[in-house]
């Protein structure tokens, strides 16, 4: 399974990626820093969604709802209660964990398309609920809430954007490390067992209901953490930022990146952040048509997601590398 065993090359590779991510804000312009910051945010959300859908087999077409809850929790805590930005992240995660866990119960009764509809309904209702008059004093109604960008602490001499990027990167690394540990442990194996064969999993003594609701909770937690970070990065929350399209983009992200793959969520996050922009540059008249063609191209060319394609190419490269080395060895002897 992808990312489950760590060998030396892989560790070096991960180290290099992290280093590149650390240095990135110092070599690109501030708008790019903002964009990559959002890539990190999406990667966190996609990681949660991939645990639920990729590893556990529960389809969610409504993760935008948990993302929205996370964002609103952060915004309300900062704006109404004066909570510092860094403290809103765990709070948003906790609230979403509970929300996801609770949603996991009705989800136990629904499978496949039915679960897709139920979650999609959740995604579609979220903007309506956020606009609802009864909640306006908290949510700010249609107007939403504007929040302030935090300053770099400890007198660090870097811009707000840079600091926020590093803050998000730190949390992203934490969340990846956590996910990696969950997935290779007991719970992770149970998740996959339930996806592949629920009846056998039950017979093996796995508490299917508990694992599925727990997965829903964890997955929503990731979406909530991402949502809080996203709100802080964008400095603004409003109902129309969380339309059903967000949920659909997230699902696209995990499929294009690679289902049940940790590294895949990074490719997926890059896709959903940049491809709409690229499509817009290619055709101002019908950007979404271009986006759709991109989707079809990715699905046809990389049916197992970008992660699957990378793994395939990596494997080929490794094989030919070994062949070259073996040839050299025979030549020398």
């Amino acid at each position: 399974m992808d990312g489950m065993h760590v060998n030396k090359t892989r560790l070096i590779f991960i180290g290099m990626v992290v280093l590149a991510a650390l240095l990135l804000p110092f070599v690109v312009g501030s708008y790019r820093v903002f964009q990559f910051n959002l890539v990190l945010v999406y990667a966190i959300v996609l990681l949660g969604l991939n645990m639920l859908t990729g590893y556990n087999g529960q389809i969610s077409l409504g993760h935008g709802a948990f993302y929205a809850i996370g964002a609103y929790v952060a915004a309300i805590l900062m704006d109404k209660l004066g909570v510092p930005y860094w403290a809103t992240v765990p709070a948003a995660g906790a609230v979403c964990f509970v929300a996801g866990f609770l949603f996991g119960f009705p989800a136990l009764r629904l499978h496949g398309h039915y679960l897709a509809l139920a979650t999609f309904a959740l995604g579609i209702s979220m903007p309506q609920i956020l606009k609802y008059k009864g909640l306006e004093q908290w949510t700010g109604g249609v107007q939403g809430i504007v929040i302030l960008k935090p300053q770099a602490p400890f007198g660090l001499n870097i811009s707000q954007d840079h600091w926020l990027y590093l803050f998000t990167l730190f949390i992203a690394l934490l969340m990846f490390w956590l996910a990696w540990n969950i997935l290779r442990g007991r719970v992770g194996r149970a998740m996959v067992a339930i996806r592949d064969h629920p009846i056998a999993a039950e017979a093996m003594g796995i508490n299917v209901g508990a694992v599925k609701t727990l997965t829903f909770g964890i997955s929503a937690l990731y979406a909530g953490v991402g949502g809080a970070l996203g709100a802080i990065v964008v400095q603004f929350v409003a109902p129309d930022s969380f339309v059903a399209l967000v949920s659909i983009s997230l699902l696209i992200g995990i499929v294009i990146g690679g289902l049940a793959s940790i590294s895949g969520v990074i490719y997926g996050a890059i896709f959903i952040q940049f491809v709409p922009n690229i499509a817009d540059e290619i055709s101002k008249a019908a950007p979404w048509a271009v986006y759709g063609l991109f989707l079809l191209a990715f699905v046809f060319l990389a049916p197992k997601g970008v992660a699957g394609l990378v793994q395939l190419l990596w494997g080929k490269a490794e094989a030919s590398w070994k062949r070259v080395r073996a040839q050299k060895a025979t030549l020398q002897s």
Binding site: T53, V255, I256, G292, L295, L296, V299
Partner: peptide, 9 residues
């Protein structure tokens, strides 16, 4: 899920 993406496309 791949099909879902194709239909969305």
């Amino acid at each position: 899920l791949t099909l879902v993406v194709v239909f969305i496309a």
